[in-house]
Protein backbone atom coordinates (compact mmCIF):
# COMPACT_ATOMS: atom_id res chain seq x y z
CA UNK A 1 0.00 0.00 0.00
CA UNK A 2 2.61 2.50 1.12
CA UNK A 3 4.91 1.31 -1.62
CA UNK A 4 2.48 1.92 -4.46
CA UNK A 5 1.59 5.42 -3.31
CA UNK A 6 5.28 6.28 -3.11
CA UNK A 7 5.71 4.98 -6.63
CA UNK A 8 2.83 7.04 -7.92
CA UNK A 9 4.24 10.15 -6.22
CA UNK A 10 7.70 9.76 -7.66
CA UNK A 11 6.22 9.16 -11.10
CA UNK A 12 4.35 12.39 -10.79
CA UNK A 13 7.40 14.35 -9.68
CA UNK A 14 9.61 13.02 -12.43
CA UNK A 15 7.04 13.03 -15.27
CA UNK A 16 4.83 15.60 -16.87
CA UNK A 17 1.53 16.16 -15.10
CA UNK A 18 -0.83 16.30 -18.03
CA UNK A 19 -3.95 16.75 -15.97
CA UNK A 20 -2.41 19.73 -14.16
CA UNK A 21 -1.34 21.22 -17.49
CA UNK A 22 -4.75 20.79 -19.13
CA UNK A 23 -6.53 21.99 -16.05
CA UNK A 24 -4.57 25.27 -15.96
CA UNK A 25 -4.67 25.68 -19.74
CA UNK A 26 -8.44 25.22 -20.04
CA UNK A 27 -9.68 26.67 -16.78
CA UNK A 28 -6.97 28.91 -15.44
CA UNK A 29 -7.40 30.28 -11.96
CA UNK A 30 -8.75 33.75 -11.30
CA UNK A 31 -5.31 35.06 -10.33
CA UNK A 32 -3.83 33.69 -13.54
CA UNK A 33 -6.52 35.37 -15.62
CA UNK A 34 -5.94 38.58 -13.73
CA UNK A 35 -2.26 38.33 -14.61
CA UNK A 36 -3.18 37.70 -18.24
CA UNK A 37 -5.47 40.71 -18.26
CA UNK A 38 -2.72 42.91 -16.80
CA UNK A 39 -0.33 41.70 -19.49
CA UNK A 40 -2.85 42.67 -22.15
CA UNK A 41 -3.87 46.08 -20.94
CA UNK A 42 -0.41 47.18 -19.92
CA UNK A 43 0.85 46.18 -23.38
CA UNK A 44 -1.92 48.04 -25.17
CA UNK A 45 -1.66 51.22 -23.12
CA UNK A 46 2.15 51.27 -23.15
CA UNK A 47 2.25 50.62 -26.91
CA UNK A 48 -0.29 53.36 -27.63
CA UNK A 49 1.59 55.87 -25.50
CA UNK A 50 4.86 54.69 -27.01
CA UNK A 51 3.58 55.35 -30.54
CA UNK A 52 2.39 58.84 -29.62
CA UNK A 53 5.61 59.74 -27.79
CA UNK A 54 7.62 58.13 -30.60
CA UNK A 55 5.83 60.34 -33.12
CA UNK A 56 6.74 63.41 -31.09
CA UNK A 57 10.39 62.31 -30.92
CA UNK A 58 10.46 61.53 -34.66
CA UNK A 59 9.03 64.96 -35.47
CA UNK A 60 11.56 66.57 -33.15
CA UNK A 61 14.34 64.78 -35.01
CA UNK A 62 13.08 66.30 -38.28
CA UNK A 63 12.58 69.77 -36.85
CA UNK A 64 14.24 72.79 -38.40
CA UNK A 65 15.42 73.72 -34.91
CA UNK A 66 18.75 72.15 -34.06
CA UNK A 67 17.99 71.92 -30.33
CA UNK A 68 14.92 69.75 -30.97
CA UNK A 69 16.81 67.54 -33.41
CA UNK A 70 19.58 67.12 -30.87
CA UNK A 71 17.12 66.37 -28.07
CA UNK A 72 15.36 63.73 -30.14
CA UNK A 73 18.64 62.08 -31.05
CA UNK A 74 19.82 62.10 -27.44
CA UNK A 75 16.55 60.50 -26.29
CA UNK A 76 16.85 57.64 -28.76
CA UNK A 77 20.52 57.16 -27.94
CA UNK A 78 19.90 57.04 -24.20
CA UNK A 79 16.81 54.83 -24.18
CA UNK A 80 17.91 52.38 -26.83
CA UNK A 81 21.34 52.15 -25.27
CA UNK A 82 20.17 50.79 -21.91
CA UNK A 83 18.29 47.57 -21.12
CA UNK A 84 14.59 47.72 -20.39
CA UNK A 85 15.15 45.61 -17.29
CA UNK A 86 17.56 48.19 -15.88
CA UNK A 87 15.19 51.02 -16.79
CA UNK A 88 12.32 49.32 -14.96
CA UNK A 89 14.31 48.85 -11.77
CA UNK A 90 15.71 52.38 -11.99
CA UNK A 91 12.29 53.96 -12.40
CA UNK A 92 10.37 51.93 -9.84
CA UNK A 93 12.97 51.01 -7.22
CA UNK A 94 15.80 53.39 -8.00
CA UNK A 95 13.81 56.62 -7.88
CA UNK A 96 12.12 55.54 -4.67
CA UNK A 97 15.39 54.49 -3.05
CA UNK A 98 16.98 57.81 -3.93
CA UNK A 99 13.98 59.60 -2.50
CA UNK A 100 13.26 61.28 -5.83
CA UNK A 101 9.85 59.83 -6.54
CA UNK A 102 7.83 56.98 -5.18
CA UNK A 103 5.03 55.56 -7.30
CA UNK A 104 1.94 55.25 -5.11
CA UNK A 105 -1.50 53.87 -5.80
CA UNK A 106 -3.97 56.48 -7.00
CA UNK A 107 -7.72 56.34 -7.16
CA UNK A 108 -9.16 57.21 -10.58
CA UNK A 109 -12.93 57.16 -10.41
CA UNK A 110 -13.74 53.81 -8.81
CA UNK A 111 -10.50 52.21 -9.99
CA UNK A 112 -7.30 51.90 -8.05
CA UNK A 113 -4.28 52.46 -10.27
CA UNK A 114 -1.39 50.63 -8.63
CA UNK A 115 1.87 52.51 -8.28
CA UNK A 116 3.75 49.62 -9.82
CA UNK A 117 1.41 49.65 -12.84
CA UNK A 118 2.03 53.36 -13.34
CA UNK A 119 5.78 52.80 -13.25
CA UNK A 120 5.47 49.85 -15.62
CA UNK A 121 3.34 51.64 -18.21
CA UNK A 122 5.51 54.75 -18.03
CA UNK A 123 8.77 52.86 -18.46
CA UNK A 124 7.49 50.59 -21.21
CA UNK A 125 6.03 53.58 -23.10
CA UNK A 126 9.20 55.64 -22.75
CA UNK A 127 11.28 52.68 -23.87
CA UNK A 128 8.98 51.87 -26.76
CA UNK A 129 8.94 55.49 -27.92
CA UNK A 130 12.64 55.34 -28.76
CA UNK A 131 12.10 52.40 -31.09
CA UNK A 132 8.89 53.83 -32.57
CA UNK A 133 10.67 57.13 -33.20
CA UNK A 134 13.23 55.35 -35.34
CA UNK A 135 10.52 53.40 -37.17
CA UNK A 136 8.48 56.53 -37.87
CA UNK A 137 11.56 58.50 -38.89
CA UNK A 138 12.61 55.79 -41.32
CA UNK A 139 9.07 55.62 -42.74
CA UNK A 140 8.95 59.38 -43.28
CA UNK A 141 12.38 59.29 -44.91
CA UNK A 142 11.20 56.52 -47.23
CA UNK A 143 8.53 58.74 -48.79
CA UNK A 144 9.57 60.27 -52.09
CA UNK A 145 10.81 63.85 -51.80
CA UNK A 146 8.43 64.75 -54.64
CA UNK A 147 5.49 64.26 -52.26
CA UNK A 148 6.74 67.02 -49.99
CA UNK A 149 7.46 69.25 -52.96
CA UNK A 150 3.99 68.69 -54.42
CA UNK A 151 2.43 69.60 -51.08
CA UNK A 152 4.65 72.67 -50.79
CA UNK A 153 3.81 73.76 -54.31
CA UNK A 154 0.13 73.66 -53.34
CA UNK A 155 0.83 76.11 -50.55
CA UNK A 156 0.75 73.62 -47.68
CA UNK A 157 2.65 74.56 -44.54
CA UNK A 158 5.12 72.03 -43.12
CA UNK A 159 2.64 70.86 -40.48
CA UNK A 160 -0.16 70.48 -43.03
CA UNK A 161 2.19 68.60 -45.34
CA UNK A 162 3.00 66.26 -42.46
CA UNK A 163 -0.64 65.65 -41.53
CA UNK A 164 -2.22 65.43 -44.97
CA UNK A 165 0.50 63.98 -47.16
CA UNK A 166 3.37 62.37 -45.24
CA UNK A 167 1.85 60.70 -42.16
CA UNK A 168 -0.97 58.93 -44.04
CA UNK A 169 1.61 57.46 -46.39
CA UNK A 170 4.04 56.67 -43.60
CA UNK A 171 1.31 54.75 -41.76
CA UNK A 172 1.34 52.00 -44.36
CA UNK A 173 5.10 51.62 -43.94
CA UNK A 174 4.90 51.79 -40.14
CA UNK A 175 2.28 49.10 -39.51
CA UNK A 176 4.40 45.96 -40.20
CA UNK A 177 7.26 46.98 -37.87
CA UNK A 178 4.69 48.35 -35.41
CA UNK A 179 3.14 44.89 -35.33
CA UNK A 180 6.54 43.46 -34.51
CA UNK A 181 6.98 46.01 -31.76
CA UNK A 182 3.64 45.14 -30.18
CA UNK A 183 4.47 41.46 -30.35
CA UNK A 184 7.71 42.20 -28.49
CA UNK A 185 5.88 44.46 -26.07
CA UNK A 186 3.48 41.70 -24.96
CA UNK A 187 6.42 39.43 -24.28
CA UNK A 188 8.45 42.21 -22.63
CA UNK A 189 5.76 42.59 -19.98
CA UNK A 190 7.15 39.41 -18.41
CA UNK A 191 10.07 41.59 -17.29
CA UNK A 192 7.65 43.48 -15.07
CA UNK A 193 7.90 40.54 -12.67
CA UNK A 194 11.17 42.01 -11.37
CA UNK A 195 9.37 45.03 -9.96
CA UNK A 196 6.74 42.75 -8.44
CA UNK A 197 3.93 43.42 -10.87
CA UNK A 198 1.58 40.46 -10.87
CA UNK A 199 1.36 39.98 -14.62
CA UNK A 200 1.13 36.61 -16.27
CA UNK A 201 4.74 35.54 -15.72
CA UNK A 202 4.88 36.40 -12.04
CA UNK A 203 1.48 34.75 -11.52
CA UNK A 204 2.86 31.59 -13.10
CA UNK A 205 5.86 31.86 -10.83
CA UNK A 206 3.76 32.07 -7.70
CA UNK A 207 1.65 29.11 -8.81
CA UNK A 208 4.95 27.30 -9.38
CA UNK A 209 6.21 27.98 -5.88
CA UNK A 210 2.94 26.66 -4.45
CA UNK A 211 2.71 23.52 -6.63
CA UNK A 212 6.28 22.86 -7.91
CA UNK A 213 4.76 22.10 -11.32
CA UNK A 214 7.45 24.22 -12.98
CA UNK A 215 7.36 22.79 -16.48
CA UNK A 216 3.58 22.53 -16.59
CA UNK A 217 2.71 26.01 -15.38
CA UNK A 218 5.32 27.83 -17.48
CA UNK A 219 4.22 25.84 -20.50
CA UNK A 220 0.69 27.10 -19.81
CA UNK A 221 2.08 30.62 -19.63
CA UNK A 222 3.94 30.11 -22.90
CA UNK A 223 0.72 28.90 -24.52
CA UNK A 224 -1.07 32.04 -23.42
CA UNK A 225 1.70 34.33 -24.68
CA UNK A 226 1.55 32.44 -27.95
CA UNK A 227 -2.22 32.85 -28.08
CA UNK A 228 -1.87 36.62 -27.53
CA UNK A 229 0.75 37.08 -30.23
CA UNK A 230 -1.20 34.86 -32.64
CA UNK A 231 -4.41 36.83 -32.19
CA UNK A 232 -2.40 39.99 -32.69
CA UNK A 233 -0.82 38.74 -35.91
CA UNK A 234 -4.32 38.33 -37.38
CA UNK A 235 -5.37 41.78 -36.22
CA UNK A 236 -2.20 43.22 -37.73
CA UNK A 237 -2.80 41.51 -41.06
CA UNK A 238 -6.31 42.89 -41.27
CA UNK A 239 -5.03 46.41 -40.51
CA UNK A 240 -2.43 46.05 -43.26
CA UNK A 241 -5.09 44.89 -45.68
CA UNK A 242 -7.26 47.86 -44.84
CA UNK A 243 -4.37 50.28 -45.40
CA UNK A 244 -3.29 48.68 -48.67
CA UNK A 245 -3.76 50.77 -51.78
CA UNK A 246 -6.80 49.25 -53.50
CA UNK A 247 -5.21 50.18 -56.80
CA UNK A 248 -2.27 47.88 -56.33
CA UNK A 249 -2.48 44.18 -55.70
CA UNK A 250 -1.19 43.64 -52.20
CA UNK A 251 1.51 41.01 -51.94
CA UNK A 252 0.00 37.68 -50.96
CA UNK A 253 0.09 37.45 -47.20
CA UNK A 254 1.55 34.49 -45.42
CA UNK A 255 -0.85 31.60 -45.15
CA UNK A 256 -2.13 30.44 -41.80
CA UNK A 257 0.41 27.63 -41.79
CA UNK A 258 3.29 29.95 -42.65
CA UNK A 259 2.05 32.34 -40.03
CA UNK A 260 2.03 29.66 -37.35
CA UNK A 261 5.15 27.69 -38.16
CA UNK A 262 7.15 30.41 -39.86
CA UNK A 263 8.04 28.26 -42.87
CA UNK A 264 7.90 29.51 -46.45
CA UNK A 265 6.79 26.87 -48.92
CA UNK A 266 8.14 23.35 -49.14
CA UNK A 267 6.84 20.66 -46.87
CA UNK A 268 5.51 21.23 -43.40
CA UNK A 269 8.17 22.12 -40.88
CA UNK A 270 9.44 19.05 -39.09
CA UNK A 271 7.84 18.45 -35.75
CA UNK A 272 9.52 20.05 -32.82
CA UNK A 273 11.74 22.35 -34.88
CA UNK A 274 9.02 24.84 -35.76
CA UNK A 275 9.78 28.42 -34.82
CA UNK A 276 6.56 29.14 -33.07
CA UNK A 277 5.06 32.59 -33.06
CA UNK A 278 7.76 34.14 -35.22
CA UNK A 279 6.36 37.10 -37.07
CA UNK A 280 7.00 37.16 -40.79
CA UNK A 281 9.12 40.18 -41.51
CA UNK A 282 8.40 42.81 -44.12
CA UNK A 283 11.39 41.62 -46.08
CA UNK A 284 10.11 38.08 -45.99
CA UNK A 285 6.79 39.21 -47.33
CA UNK A 286 8.35 41.19 -50.13
CA UNK A 287 10.35 38.18 -51.13
CA UNK A 288 7.17 36.23 -51.81
Amino acid sequence: MADTSLLADSAQVAGFDWSFFWHYLISPSGTFLEGLWRTVYISVVAQALGVLLGLVIALAQRSRFAALRWGGGAYVWLIRGTPLLVQLVLVYNGLAAAGVYRFTDVQVGGLVLLGVVQAAVLTLAVNEAAYMAEIIRAALDAIDRGQTEAAQALGMTPSLTMRVVLLPQALRIIVPPLGNEFNLMMKSTSLLSVIGLQEMFLTAQSINSATFKTFEIFLVAACYYLALTTVWSFVQRSIERRLADPGTTPPPGPSLRERLVGGRGGGPAPRGTAVVGKEPTLAGREAS
Binding site: D144, G146, Q147, E149, A150, A153, V165, D245
Partner: peptide, 8 residues
Protein backbone atom coordinates in the same frame (compact mmCIF):
# COMPACT_ATOMS: atom_id res chain seq x y z
CA UNK B 1 6.17 68.29 -61.97
CA UNK B 2 7.91 66.09 -64.47
CA UNK B 3 7.07 63.04 -62.39
CA UNK B 4 3.50 64.15 -61.50
CA UNK B 5 3.97 63.63 -57.73
CA UNK B 6 0.31 62.82 -57.17
CA UNK B 7 -0.61 61.76 -53.65
CA UNK B 8 -0.86 57.97 -53.94
Amino acid sequence: FQRFNLFP
